[in-house]
């Protein structure tokens, strides 16, 4: 009798995932959006690097004027952030970038009559991708790997077709939603209630009304949002070991995309 290989239970299995820590945060304002993340990449208790980039600015070509103004993207840019297993995050970003390039490429501009749909239906339209389309595409990429998922929390930020700030957030298998703000990654449970309170005014009532009248929702200014982002990250750096080293804040408005860097504690 020949023993059959594969009948005995497998002793050890390769684990294709790891947790690289970090936190990602997006806030949408009236005419701007912010996407921010810490720059630490870690595994277990080791810090791999103090300067990794979890956010990619996916942008049409910059003009020389833009470059002179130290902008890192145009107002049509998509701020693309991933957090979780960094190898999957990088792969997802590249997948999306490829789709973006095909979608916006000018090669489709000269089109036979009747085939305008190949050019997003509009020959004169500037080559770019709306946030709505980008988000739907990301869902398809993520869901395409439903049974071997990209182990990441994804957040997109940009301006919608009316020029209003928008944030889209995704779970690892592609469920998504447009939101006013969202935190992903290791510090999500610490920061999210803070944003509920400070951005959406949850549990805030008008004084003297005996908690019968909620504080009215209103857009925060860019300055107020930046203060919240910095407060959120310094707070979570205190209490979470995988968050720290540096903070990258990308701000998109009608001028384009700007990058701010702030140091965080390195301990």
């Amino acid at each position: 009798m020949v023993a059959q290989y594969g009948k005995e239970p497998i002793q050890h299995q390769f684990n294709p995932y790891s947790d690289n820590g970090g936190t990602l945060l997006g806030i949408a304002g009236e005419d701007f959006a912010i996407l921010a993340s810490d720059t630490r990449q870690s595994v277990d208790y080791s810090i791999n690097t103090r300067l990794s980039h979890k956010i990619k600015v996916i942008t049409p070509d910059l003009s020389s004027e833009d470059k002179k103004n130290k902008l890192v993207g145009t107002n049509k840019s998509i701020l693309f952030g991933t957090n979780g297993f960094s190898a999957d995050g990088d792969a997802l970003t590249e997948d999306f970038e490829e789709n973006y390039k095909f979608y916006t490429s000018n090669q489709n501009k000269k089109i036979e009559p009747g085939f305008e749909f190949l050019n997003n239906g509009n020959e004169d339209k500037e080559s770019s991708m709306t946030m709505q389309s980008a988000a739907r595409n990301v869902q398809h990429i993520l869901y395409g790997k439903r049974f071997f998922p990209y182990y990441v929390h994804t957040i997109l930020a940009g301006l919608d077709e009316e020029g209003k700030g928008c944030v889209y957030s995704f779970d690892p298998v592609g469920s998504y939603e447009r939101e006013q703000c969202r935190v992903g990654g290791a510090g999500a449970s610490l920061i999210m209630p803070f944003l509920d309170n400070q951005v959406n005014f949850k549990n805030q009532y008008i004084p003297g009304t005996n908690s019968t009248e909620r504080k009215k929702l209103e857009y925060l200014t860019l300055e107020e949002c930046l203060k919240l982002v910095k407060d959120a990250f310094t707070s979570v750096t205190e209490r979470h070991i995988t968050v720290g080293d540096g903070l990258e804040i990308f701000i998109i408005n009608k001028e384009g995309v700007r990058l701010e860097y702030h140091a965080l504690k390195k301990d």
């Binding site: 020949v2 023993a3 059959q4 290989y5 594969g6 009948k7 002793q11 299995q13």
Partner: peptide, 25 residues
């Protein structure tokens, strides 16, 4: 002796189960 490097117990066994050997350590 299949104990050596966790090799399959026989070639037939390997073929029959269709198992592919991957590095697990």
């Amino acid at each position: 002796n299949s104990q050596i490097a966790n090799a399959p117990t026989s070639l037939e066994g390997n073929m029959a189960s269709g198992a592919n050997q991957h590095t697990t350590s």
